[in-house]
C-alpha cells in the first residue's frame, strides 16, 4: 500500500523529535563541556577578528572588500560553519562510524526511512545556540550594517543561495563519507571537507580559473562567498541564485543515486 503524504511527514517528524531529544540528553551530560565550548567559540572568534585586524593593518581592502565587508563575510562564514557542522557533519561522521563498527546492520533492520534517520540522528538545538550566538553577536556588534548597502531583495536572494550552498556542502560531505561502504573507513576524506568547506575566499579575489573551479567542479565557494557577494552587490544575483538552485537540484539527484549504489555495496558485518 502506498504511503500517504501525511504519514510520510508524520514519521519523519517523529524521528526528528526523538533524535533532537536524544541529542539534547547527550549534550547536557557534561555541563562543563558546554561552558568550555562557549569559551572555545569566543577564543576562535576573538582570534579571527584579531587576524583580520592584523591583515587590515597591512592592506586597505582585500579584493575590493573593506574591513567592514570582511567582517560581514566572517559573520556569514561563521553562521555557515556552525549550521553545517551541526546538521550535516556530525551525522555524516556518525554514518562512517556506524559502518566502521558494524552498527549499520542494526540501523538497516529498523522499519524507518534509513537515510532520513541517519542524517538527522544528531540534531542539537543546544549546540546551535551555544556555538552560534556568541560569535555572531561578537562579529555583529563590530559590523557597520548601514555601510554594507544591503537591500531586502539582495538579502532574500542571498538567503536562498546560502540555503542551496548548505545543501551543496552537505551533499559534498555525504559523498566523501560513502567510500566507507566499500573501504570500511572514510574519516580522513571527511576530515578533508573540514578544510574545504570554509575557504574564506572572496569570489572577487580569485582568478577566473579558480572562480570557475570553486563554483562548479568543487562548488565550495557558493555558500559563503556566493551569498555574500550577492548580498553586498558584488555579483549578479540572478545568475548566482539560478546556478545555486540548479546545482542543489542536480546534487540531490546525485546523492540519491550514490546512496542506492552504496547500500548495494554494503557488506554486513554480522550476518
Amino acid at each position: 500500500m502506498k504511503q500517504s503524504v501525511f504519514n510520510y511527514l508524520k514519521i519523519r517528524l517523529q524521528i526528528l523529535g526523538i533524535n533532537i531529544s536524544n541529542t539534547f540528553n547527550i549534550e547536557t551530560a557534561y555541563p562543563a563541556e558546554n561552558w568550555a565550548n562557549i569559551l572555545s567559540t569566543f577564543f576562535y572568534t576573538a582570534s579571527y577578528i584579531l587576524f583580520l585586524n592584523v591583515i587590515f593593518g597591512n592592506v586597505n581592502s582585500l579584493a575590493g572588500y573593506s574591513y567592514n565587508d570582511m567582517l560581514f563575510f566572517t559573520f556569514v562564514s561563521q553562521l555557515s560553519f556552525y549550521t553545517l557542522f551541526n546538521w550535516s557533519y556530525d551525522n555524516v561522521d556518525a554514518l562512517i562510524e556506524s559502518i566502521h563498527k558494524g552498527e549499520m546492520d542494526l540501523i538497516l533492520t529498523k522499519p524507518l526511512p534509513t537515510l532520513f534517520y541517519i542524517m538527522t540522528r544528531k540534531f542539537s538545538i543546544i549546540r546551535v545556540v551555544r556555538d552560534c550566538v556568541l560569535p555572531l553577536l561578537m562579529i555583529g556588534i563590530l559590523i557597520d550594517w548601514s555601510a554594507l548597502g544591503l537591500s531586502l531583495i539582495s538579502i532574500l536572494i542571498g538567503i536562498i543561495i546560502f540555503v542551496c550552498g548548505q545543501w551543496i556542502m552537505h551533499v559534498f560531505q555525504f559523498l566523501l563519507a560513502l567510500p566507507a561502504f566499500w573501504q570500511g573507513q572514510s574519516q580522513a576524506l571527511l576530515r578533508l571537507s573540514y578544510i574545504l568547506t570554509n575557504p574564506n575566499l572572496p569570489l572577487q579575489g580569485l582568478t577566473k580559473f579558480w572562480r570557475i573551479i570553486l563554483t562548479t567542479v568543487l562548488p565550495i565557494c557558493i555558500v559563503v562567498s556566493g551569498s555574500v557577494s550577492v548580498m553586498i552587490g558584488r555579483s549578479n544575483p540572478k545568475t548566482m541564485v539560478l546556478w545555486a538552485l540548479c546545482l542543489a537540484l542536480f546534487l540531490t539527484y546525485v546523492r540519491m543515486i550514490a546512496w542506492k549504489k552504496a547500500l548495494r555495496a554494503y557488506n554486513s558485518a554480522s550476518s
Binding site: 565550548n37 577564543f43 582570534s47
Partner: peptide
C-alpha cells in the same frame, strides 16, 4: 577532573594558533 576536555582543548588551541604565529 572533568573527564571531557575537548572544548578546553579547542579553546587553548585557538589561542595558540594566533599567538604562536600559525595563523599569521
Amino acid at each position: 577532573i572533568t573527564k571531557e576536555i575537548n572544548s578546553i582543548r579547542h579553546s587553548i588551541s585557538h589561542l595558540i594558533r594566533i599567538l604562536s604565529g600559525s595563523m599569521v
